[in-house]
């Protein structure tokens, strides 16, 4: 059984990979162990805490509940894919400013859930944010600072988008 390694091709944070995995290997273990992307954390490994949330073709998934082979042919985005050239994403900047983290262990999952939310809804209200976060547990912050950070990031991203739009029309 353990000799049956299966090829998986996927892209992680825009980088193409080809590797061979055991059928039982989770996406989480593949990211952490095989690709050494340890930003995504294992909190419960039964799909409850959301610490291992990553995006699969833009949709949030629990990397602990998905098998690596199920990611074959898909695009995965992890917390390591948020910053560009060492500069933090506006969500990360807002989390820092509002101190939306303490121990940081749930934070990568929170960021990926928030990223998906803002892709779908650029101007979420407090209740919408809390509802979107309901599958991500945080034991440190009490969530309020996370909610505030996501609102701040949403506002900045909207302003950025608005600033970009007129320059495109004039060009």
């Amino acid at each position: 059984m353990e000799d049956d390694f299966i090829p998986v091709r996927l892209s992680v944070n825009g980088v193409p990979h080809r590797l061979f995995v055991e059928p039982r290997r989770t996406l989480l273990d593949m990211l952490r162990e095989d690709l050494e992307l340890t930003g995504t954390n294992a909190g419960c490994e039964h799909g409850s805490c959301g610490a291992c949330t990553v995006l699969l073709d833009g949709q949030s998934v629990r990397a602990c509940l998905l098998l690596a082979v199920q990611a074959n042919g898909h695009e995965v985005m992890t917390v390591e894919g948020l910053a560009r050239h060492g500069r933090m994403h506006p969500l990360q900047e807002a989390f820092w400013e509002k101190q939306a983290l303490q121990c940081g262990f749930c934070t990568p999952g929170m960021l990926m859930t928030a990223y998906e939310l803002l892709q779908q809804n650029p101007d979420p209200g407090e209740e919408e944010i809390r509802s979107a976060l309901s599958g991500n547990l945080c034991r440190c912050t009490g969530y309020q600072h996370i909610v505030e950070a996501i609102r701040l990031a949403a506002q900045r991203l909207r302003e950025e988008a608005e600033a970009a739009t007129p320059s495109e029309t004039t060009a």
């Binding site: 930003g39 990360q92 121990c103 940081g104």
Partner: peptide, 19 residues
């Protein structure tokens, strides 16, 4: 003050024991 611990935690680059 913003915490100086945070950027590494936010970018997923700290080493927890499991890492």
């Amino acid at each position: 003050l913003k915490r100086r611990e945070d950027p590494a935690l936010l970018m997923g680059t700290v080493t927890y024991i499991n890492d």
